[in-house]
Amino acid sequence: MHEIPYEEILDNLRALNAQRVLIQSPEGLRREAEEIARFLEEKSIDVILHGEINYGACDPADREAKLLGCDALIHLGHSYMRLNLEVPTIFVPAFAQVEVIPALEKNLEEIRKLGKKIALVTTAQHIHRLDEARGFLERKGFEVLVGRGDSRVSWPGQVLGCNFSSAKVNADGVLFIGSGYFHPLGVALATRKPTLAINPYSGDAIWMTEEAERLVRKRWAQVAKAIDARSFGVIVSTKKGQLRLAEARRVVGLLREHGKRAELIAMNHISYGKLEGFSFDAYVVVACPRVPIDDYENWRKPILTPREVELLLGLREDYVFDEITGTDRDFDEPMGVSVHGPKAGL
């Protein structure tokens, strides 16, 4: 279950004088989206549910909302991200209703293996429990650091699937609170420090060191497969929060400087099936780093990140996880607000 601030959502819509709204949600929050719709329709607001897959705050359906004649977009399940949106957008994080202290208590001895000074991070779903977790750990004798992160994250201590800046503090190790595999794996790769992931739902604790090493070996294998590639399709995303056109052009320039043929390809939903007609020997995804890491087995040709291109060309020696940072693009006149948490401004 998740906390949904119905009245706060309604107050924001009334402040916008919104009569019709589009509700966008990830697959795991579709029931909550239906409940919001029923609540708002009782308040005489016209509601449309967005049925496409949603990949995060980087993937708002503001264009669709405008096309459908909506006055606002409700983006459910993710925290505010500063983007230039086409309609006013209300970001609703949907905090998980699960306690974190029991899982920390259960795994206290594992946490001690991180060292005395630990960085504490989590996702938007559990960010409201971070102060509580910090207090518990400090009472147990730890020095707990909660990094601010860059402008891409909404709260100190929050990590995204593409941004781990809040974990990059001077700590002995990193403690991640949350479910799932990709976020703590990204933390381990981005910080190169011992990382322990504790799942507040199951109470399980997983060390990410071996998982990170296993992933790096797989990524090096992709780089090796691309050694003989002479042509590259460099994919740039049209999703507003993943648009890294300057970085994509930089990658094209690097490849061409090293005698490779490289062309830009613009896509929204990135999948190999859509690219079958092209003749490129390999591809570079300059968008969400989860695409080349999660989906590489579905690609018949090598698929790299920008940092892996640098490895391929001999421009770096150590593996570096690709991240989207708050300085990757410029933002003008953001039209978003966060609810049920620190306001991020209209």
Rank of each mutant, 00 (worst) to 15 (best):
92 V>G: 11
73 L>F: 05
56 G>E: 07
281 D>M: 04
63 R>M: 11
288 C>T: 08
226 A>H: 10
81 M>H: 04
9 I>C: 07
226 A>Y: 09
41 E>T: 15
131 D>F: 12
319 Y>E: 00
45 I>M: 06
82 R>D: 13
116 K>G: 06
45 I>G: 06
186 G>W: 03
265 I>P: 04
279 S>Q: 12
242 Q>D: 13
331 F>Y: 13
226 A>K: 08
54 N>L: 11
139 R>Q: 14
55 Y>E: 04
96 A>N: 11
34 E>R: 14
266 A>V: 12
15 A>T: 06
164 F>S: 02
191 T>E: 02
36 I>S: 00
9 I>D: 08
111 I>R: 00
39 F>K: 02
243 L>A: 07
73 L>Y: 03
144 V>R: 01
299 W>Q: 04
8 E>N: 01
109 E>L: 13
236 V>H: 12
311 L>T: 05
191 T>M: 03
252 V>D: 11
288 C>K: 10
318 D>N: 14
313 L>I: 02
293 I>D: 00
171 A>H: 09
135 G>T: 11
323 E>W: 05
13 L>C: 09
30 R>F: 12
301 K>E: 06
182 F>Q: 00
185 L>E: 00
317 E>A: 01
203 G>M: 07
186 G>E: 03
310 E>D: 14
245 L>S: 07
112 R>F: 13
28 G>L: 09
49 L>E: 09
189 L>V: 06
125 Q>W: 02
345 G>V: 01
116 K>S: 08
72 A>W: 04
191 T>K: 00
50 H>V: 08
33 A>L: 10
28 G>C: 09
32 E>K: 08
58 C>A: 07
130 L>D: 11
222 Q>I: 00
271 S>Y: 13
50 H>I: 08
86 E>N: 13
179 S>Q: 01
217 R>F: 02
327 T>H: 13
32 E>G: 09
169 V>F: 01
330 D>C: 05
231 S>C: 07
131 D>Q: 12
248 A>V: 08
62 D>C: 08
287 A>R: 01
271 S>L: 12
341 G>I: 02
34 E>L: 14
197 A>W: 05
293 I>M: 01
157 G>P: 12
247 E>R: 15
329 R>P: 00
196 L>D: 13
91 F>T: 06
260 K>C: 05
188 A>Y: 07
83 L>T: 11
339 V>R: 03
281 D>K: 02
82 R>I: 00
338 S>N: 14
79 S>F: 04
90 I>C: 15
236 V>E: 14
190 A>M: 13
53 I>N: 12
205 A>F: 04
259 G>L: 08
195 T>Y: 02
